[in-house]
Amino acid sequence: MIIYGVYIVSKSGGLIFNLDNNVPRIEHEKSFTYPLDIVLDYDSKKVTVAFNKKESINVGHVLVSVNGILVNGATLADGRNVKTVLEAEENYPVNLKFARPKMTTNEKIFLASMFYPLFAIASQLSPEPKSSGIELLESDTFTLHCFQTLTGVKFIVVSEVGLGSMDMLLRKIYELYADYVLKNPFYSLEMPIRCELFDSKLQTLLEIIEKTGFNNLDK
């Protein structure tokens, strides 16, 4: 079983912890000749593939480097504009490396605070009174499991599809949080969690689960 990430959202809806686990960074490098046969979308923040996917380079992938020179937003590391470079015929053939886009910390914080009202809306949409919020959110590529404690902290685990209940894991993470975060005298409540002990214990827990499932959980 694969667990892609663990998020902890505080009572007030802020992301206080996130861990990316086991997400392989997929990169593809390929040589291109003039004219470029994939359509690129030039944004000020990144250059993405907009159309004409090619082998494993998919629509939505971002440009990482040109001839080994890293791309930084819309410019190359040496200061040249990506668009100008790729439109000039004399620069071809050119080696382009594409990768799956990676979320920045800001985007994660943004998404975490988006989840907060979604959770609240879900509980209000319910035809029955006293409904919980979202506990499970399924899509074709991942499943999101959410556990909210009585005090309002949300533990979120994003895993591969088709895994059964993650209650056990979420509870374990809660225990680790109670032990290694809240008992740390230098941690102040509601603040981002920067506790190395917690990180390492969580990592161990995830490793155990990925290798042997839930059976050997009570280490």
Binding site: T149, L150, T151, R171, Y174, E175, Y177, A178, L182, K183
Partner: peptide, 16 residues
């Protein structure tokens, strides 16, 4: 108490 409650809830899985 504010911190201990989380430990208590995590251990006992007590409902509201």
């Amino acid at each position: 108490g504010m911190r201990l409650i989380e430990d208590f809830l995590a251990r006992t899985q007590a409902p509201r």
